[in-house]
Structures are given as structure tokens and as C-alpha cells.
Write a protein that binds this DNA or RNA. Structure first.
Lengths: 169, 169
DNA sequence: CGGTGGCTTGATACTCGTTTTCAACTCCGG
DNA sequence: CCGGAGTTGAAAACGAGTATCAAGCCACCG
């Protein structure tokens, strides 16, 4: 294994997407490429609304149904991971070449920091085993308040751009 | 192999609920007591629909809005924990006296097994610290297939009673 | 190239969990 | 037993996500 860049290169993900479509005899439409690009070239955990906003900025019109359908496709293709941070909607993230990672979520600004832990990776399998479970996947999300928000704690905390908050369901 | 976990006594939880209401000058209505009882005396991770079903069986009619409102109250009172296992709706669980615990969720039958891990408890704080986060809470859910479902894996897996499945949002 | 069949698209209607609304009703301290 | 703040329930509203379906696009074929 080479020591990789943080994220898998967006171009490579796109290429893999094209292969997947070819291999599955699925047409590669402009909309699908635009949506996949928007996500792959972004570093964020994007919501469907975020993606729509990016496309709008790029003067590309795509219906929201198509965005949802394409996210499904990308998840099934194994190129994108789906997350639910309890905001009432999902976020998506290009799957990286790195190991599975966990999330630290700031309750004030919504910022998401990723981290990995070998120890956790080992424990998850151990614990599943102990209970007779065949392990499939897991999720560890730690919620707290990030440094910036701690220092800004009196004033109204700013929410992250691009549709991120209110509705603290 | 799995004996019912030692939950905090339902009666004590109810008593704590009554104190909370008294202390906060909130009226303790029949509906609120019925809802709280239904949840406290259950060992399950109940959905709002589950709770409505229990009340219906007990010949108590309560509007669903009230159930939602009361769950909110119980969560705010710190007597109940809210969970989202990705089913498209929430589940609630009386907060036990035990340490915070994690969940093992069977992807086939929806069964939820609880476990605790001192090591995880220690790690969460450590990791939050490392990233400058003030830790608030965390969630570790491990998804897999339980022993029973592994052995029953060919036939259609049964879903857990009391509203649990279809709609794999 | 232009046809053609099948998959995709987008607008829209719909689903379903959850929240809001509001008039009628309850709780509870005086 | 009164009165008013707080609660209730039915129903409407809300919002993310899904289904529908006519119109359109993609890719292969000759």
C-alpha cells in the first residue's frame, strides 16, 4: 500500500464511477457526472441540499429526485458513504482509500472532524464476536464542542454554511 | 444466553419523573403518567408507535402528539434516552442506572443487544481531548447479524414485533 | 449518421414520522 | 370551587425522502 493523499483523488473516484456504470450497462448521463463530481471534489459531508446548491452555482440544473437517485447509485457502487448525524437528513461523503474512520461532531457549529483508531477497529470485531454477532459495520460518533466554539461560547454559535442546522430534532 | 439487563426499577424512574414535574411546576396529567409507565415498565427500545400500542392495550387513549411531547419531556428530564437505529424513526429507552452503554444491532431481525466497555469510555474522552473537543456524548452502534439469524440465514429473516421494519429508508 | 428501445429525468404527488396549531379541557394553588 | 396557566387531541402542516409517469436522452445497431 502506498502512502496515500488524505482523500482518494476525486478524478480517480470519477473514473471508478464511469467503470462501474459501464460494467453495469448503465447510461452515464450529464446529470450523474455532475452530481458525482460535485461530491467527489468536495471535502465536506454534504447533504442533498448542499449538492443541489453546488450544482446551482455551477449553473447546472438537476432535479432533486435525480440527486437522491444518484446518491443511491453511488452508495451501492461503494464509492460513497452515507451518514446520519441526527440532523433529520443524511449526509454523504466520498469513500476514501483510508481505513474506516469515525466522526467528532461539534454540537455548536456542526463541524465534522474525522479520526481513526486502530484500537477501536480491533475492539469492534472482538465485541461482536463476544456476543455471537457476525460484524458488518459500525459507527462511532462523538458529539461535543470544538475549540473555536468553546471560545465563542457566549455569542450565538454560527452554524456551518450550506444547510446545516436549526431543527435540532 | 441473554438475560434481561438490570434496568433501574420502573417505580423509581416514575418517582423521579414525578419529582421532576413537581420541581418544574409542570402538571402531572394522567396521560403523562400512562406514557411514562408504559415506557418505564418495558424492557425494549420502544418507538412511539410501540408506546401507542401498549396504551391501546391498556385501554388508555392518548393522542400521538402527546406521546411525542411527553417523550421530549422525558428526554429533557434525563430519564429517557433517544436512539436512531436508521430505521426512519426514533426509539426510546428508560435511562438505566448503569453506565452508558453501546448497542449491537442485528441487521436481520432488528434485535438490539446492549453492552458496555470501560475501554471505550476511556477512549472517547481521550480522543475528544486530542482534537480540542469538549466531550458531550457519543454513540457506538455495531451492526451485524446475530447468532440466531446466522443459522436461519436462508429463510426470510423475521422482523422484530411491534413495528420494526419494512421501509429500509 | 439517423432510428430505436430502454433507461433516465424532472415535475409533481405522495408517504410517513414528527411538529404545530388552536379551541376545549385539566390540573392545582388559592 | 374558581381561575388561569399549561395540556390535550384532532387535524393540518411540515420536511426528507420516494413513487409516478410522460417526455427526453444514451448507446448501440444497422
Amino acid at each position: 500500500m502506498t502512502s496515500p493523499p488524505p482523500k482518494l483523488d476525486a478524478g480517480e473516484l470519477l473514473e471508478r464511477f464511469r467503470s462501474y456504470m459501464r460494467d453495469h450497462n448503465l447510461p452515464l448521463t450529464h446529470q450523474r457526472e455532475a452530481i458525482a463530481s460535485a461530491l467527489f471534489y468536495s471535502k465536506e459531508h454534504l447533504s442533498v441540499e448542499d449538492i443541489e446548491a453546488i450544482l446551482r452555482e455551477d449553473r447546472v440544473h438537476v432535479g432533486k429526485a435525480t440527486v437522491y437517485r444518484t446518491m443511491d447509485l453511488l452508495v451501492r457502487a461503494g464509492l460513497v458513504d452515507e451518514h446520519d448525524f441526527g440532523e433529520g437528513f443524511k449526509r454523504f461523503e466520498p469513500r476514501s482509500a483510508r481505513n474506516h474512520h469515525e466522526h467528532l461532531i461539534c454540537l455548536a457549529c456542526g463541524k465534522v472532524v474525522e479520526f481513526t483508531s486502530e484500537r477501536i477497529e480491533r475492539m469492534k470485531a472482538l465485541i461482536a464476536d463476544e456476543h455471537g454477532f457476525r460484524h458488518h459495520h459500525h459507527r462511532l460518533d462523538i458529539y461535543g464542542v470544538c475549540t473555536e466554539c468553546q471560545h465563542r461560547s457566549i455569542s450565538a454559535p454560527e452554524r456551518r454554511p450550506g444547510r446545516s442546522g436549526e431543527r435540532a430534532r
